[in-house]
Amino acid sequence: MSSKQLLRAYTYAIALLLYTPIAFMVVSSFNSSPYVGVWEGFTTYWYQLLLRDSEAHIALVNSLTIAIVSSTLSVSIALLAALQVRGRRLTAVDALVYPPIVMPEVAEAVALFLAFTYLGVEKGWLTVMLGHTAFNLAFAYVTLTVSRVRFEELEDAARTLGAGRLRIFKDIILPLAMPGIVAALAITFLLSFTNFIKTLFTTGPGFYTLPILIWNRARRPGISEFASQNALNALATLVTLTALSIAVAYTAYMLRKARR
């Protein structure tokens, strides 16, 4: 076997390993037994159970609303800045934006916890959302400015053709900035939707998102039927599928953009 074939076999083996646990999780979620590893036949029972799982419903609503609000908010704010900054390098702004990305998440989470506690804010939806927005702002800004399109000349061209500010924004800047905006929205949405650590430190009693719910059940599996291993696998499968479908839609959008 040539070294190329060896490397190729190895690469696909690693890829397989990477997906084995996820595949296993999906298969297990259709197992009649509440325990993994004991196959007792095919069932969709765990998914039906999810329909009755009011905790999961609350968690889903919380996760979705927080992710939607936080990503929209942070992308809007970052877009406003990114469009004006454009080609220029604003060292001062860059210097403010990078620390939230570099700082260890646990430390940032502790900081948020202490600040909210100090202010005496009741922890819940708002504190979690604001906590997510803190780092989403940074990621949105970086994503939007990495694809720095040079608009100046195009704007100049539009101006000589008689276009005013509003027209230029609507017809030139926005369409060209769109791929960056979509990327920033997708990334911040998923960062927020799947965030665990910051949520853990900024949430209050009785408020939970999907990752928090999964965490609580994963640490004490079997405490109730909802928390049985394979019920949890069903829930995790759904969350994974949600994330994956966003990823697929995003990749398809970007490929289409790239081809056009």
Partner: peptide, 16 residues
């Protein structure tokens, strides 16, 4: 794109 927590959980089931 898949959360750390979920991948850790999936792995935990498999290892178990």
């Amino acid at each position: 794109w898949i959360d750390f927590l979920l991948r850790a959980w999936a792995l935990k089931s498999l290892l178990y």
